[in-house]
Nucleic acid binder design. Structure first.
Lengths: 345, 345
DNA sequence: GACGATATCCAAAGCGGTTTGAACCTATGA
DNA sequence: TCATAGGTTCAAACCGCTTTGGATATCGTC
């Protein structure tokens, strides 16, 4: 059942039928209804490829996911980000065109998607402090929204990001207020923009109170269980070990907790832990009550916001930069306590 | 730069240029080279929409990811599965069209993708024991490959799956050989086909040795850290507690380990743990040495196999069912030991 | 009654490829 | 020498939709 068939059936021209179905005004209400009804009863479904060819629009959004070169690993937050975005796309008739490619092939992937006209815009994942993709995409001309930011100049493109700086500053201030001074940071890889901002927030908390930044307690790496474990185990073996740990993901926090327990310490009593929590589906911070004190910022929400922002740009053709900064919620759980308790150490 | 432009430039007809680029034989080698060169230097890239319209092929594979109705959560293995498949797609010029939709909307999503001709085939994720999607897809007529299987009748469709039954049987036999008799199973949701098979494997190990199946130690649920923790914590509080635990995912195993340590037990000494490990990127079973004894079956490999299988079917138009059963590797780590040590309990 | 405005509809020309059917050469064999 | 076959190339139709630029009918207005 093509448009032509339907038109013939209705004794109308394809033009009119097309217009009737697409809500143009130059069609009488009567025929519009007639067409709509016929379309429904005959199960007419426009051929998407043909429409794309005619309109030049792809009705699809490109998501190019970087694979970390070292371990071909995908950041687990990506799934939830995408499912958030997917809700919006589904509602507005856009498809998700996905590619998971190593860093090195990214530029080629973007270029090819643009040349092939296979998407109307991009969501950029895994923004680095110094991210060449921003310039590339500006050059390519399609609208895009960055999940995260890339370095200092954040005016020239659209983005949706959590306020990692404030989150980590506030978390650190919270620990300082509890009397902690030896606070460790188990951060993500700091070429990633979000990790860079988190580190700055962590440092700012000390600086603003005139305290020295505890560089000796600051580490960074891929956010795995083992990273948290190794970092915590190492530092807990020191004579001047930290009394509190700030981690960058729930999964590192779980590793840190393991090291803490193995060292015979008690989380929340002798060692405090606070973590960032993206609230991804299969890794909950506790079940009924929270397991860790945490800065929460649901990545699913970021996905929704980014998707809507991009679609708005595509449909209005207004590519002026837009921004959304999401404030993490500071959730107090049982994993933090005052420093006083472990004085005797 | 369209085909027509290129043809004019070369003083050839669009027909010839098209044929030259697509490897038809009715073109002399000389002109083929000339065309190829011109295409490259002028950066000609065929318009995908136009080609799709003309050929009727979409050059895209549909991945419809089910969101668990309860928590809108996505199985974390999916990312790695997809990145495995992505390698194959990229090499063969296929795109990934993705949709994450709640159970309830799945049928509609499949139907719409088929009607809109937007994909050439499907990969089915998250197969259930009783999965209506199989019949639906057979009815829809596009080729598809199931990641996993759906119940007993596995002849009528193509699939790629790990041998969950054998994996769990062998793991359980291993524990039995170590003298364990009170063995717990912390399984996934058993409406999922893989979880169902795992349970059967677990039971078979007992049955084959004439031992009673320890139903009181068998639980199932969403495979989260908390699931592992809760199940282990609960059972360890019993008088006749288990001496070993088989878990369905690394993440549940981590929860179980937490409960074990909190209970003052020592994993691998007083309580043994063995787990299934999909080898997903960000959740490694240990770093240099394994953390858990495990049945390993990399989901990334399953992704590659499934993708290749599907593409073969699409390109040969031979939809006869094909199957790949992947044998899990049994990896012995420090989390398992003989039962003798905890006799005094 | 003529005219412009408005509402409604349509033929035909794209969009950018693929594919069918035929034409044109050139070499081969009778 | 001519028919035949094989190797190359092309014009034109087609895929199914959108959109441009009228055409036609209706209506109010002067």
């Amino acid at each position: 059942m093509t448009l032509k068939d339907l038109a013939k059936l209705l004794q109308l021209s394809p033009t009119t039928v097309s217009r009737a179905l697409n809500g143009y005004t130059e069609v009488s209400e009567a025929t519009r209804l007639r067409v709509a009804e016929a379309a429904k009863t005959h199960g007419y479904q426009p051929n998407v490829q043909a429409r794309k060819l005619a309109t030049g629009r792809a009705m699809a959004i490109g998501h190019v996911i970087p694979l970390s070169q070292t371990h071909e690993m995908v950041n687990p937050t990506f799934t939830d980000m995408l499912s958030g975005a997917g809700e919006i796309y589904a509602a507005q008739g856009y498809d998700i065109l996905m590619a998971m490619v190593p860093e090195a092939d990214q530029e080629a992937t973007y270029r090819s998607m643009v040349r092939k006209r296979t998407v109307d815009g991009f969501i950029v994942h895994g923004a680095q402090v110094d991210d060449r993709r921003i310039d590339l995409l500006r050059e390519l001309g399609l609208p895009f929204v960055v999940h995260g930011r890339a370095g200092e100049n954040t005016d020239a493109y659209s983005w949706v990001d959590a306020d990692h700086y404030r989150g980590f500053r506030r978390a650190t201030e919270h620990l300082l207020a509890l009397g902690h001074r030896c606070i460790a940071l188990v951060n993500g890889v700091e070429t990633m923009d979000f990790a860079h901002r988190r580190r700055q927030g962590f440092e700012a908390a000390f600086i603003m109170q005139g305290l020295p930044v505890p560089h000796q307690y600051m580490t960074s790496g891929e956010m795995t269980e083992h990273q948290g474990y190794d970092a915590a185990a190492e530092m807990l073996s020191w004579a001047d070990r930290p009394t509190a740990i700030v981690t960058s993901s729930l999964i590192s926090a779980m590793g840190a907790r393991r090291a803490i327990e193995e060292a015979g310490e008690v989380m929340g009593k002798t060692i405090s832990v606070i973590t960032f929590d993206d609230e991804i589906g299969f890794l909950k911070n506790g079940y009924k009550t929270p397991m860790f004190s945490a800065m929460q910022s649901p990545v699913r929400v970021a996905g929704r916001r980014a998707a809507q922002m991009l679609i708005d740009q595509i449909e209005t053709r207004d590519f002026a930069p837009r921004r959304v900064l999401l404030e993490p919620v500071l959730l107090l759980g049982p994993s933090c306590g005052p420093v006083a308790l472990h004085d005797q150490n």
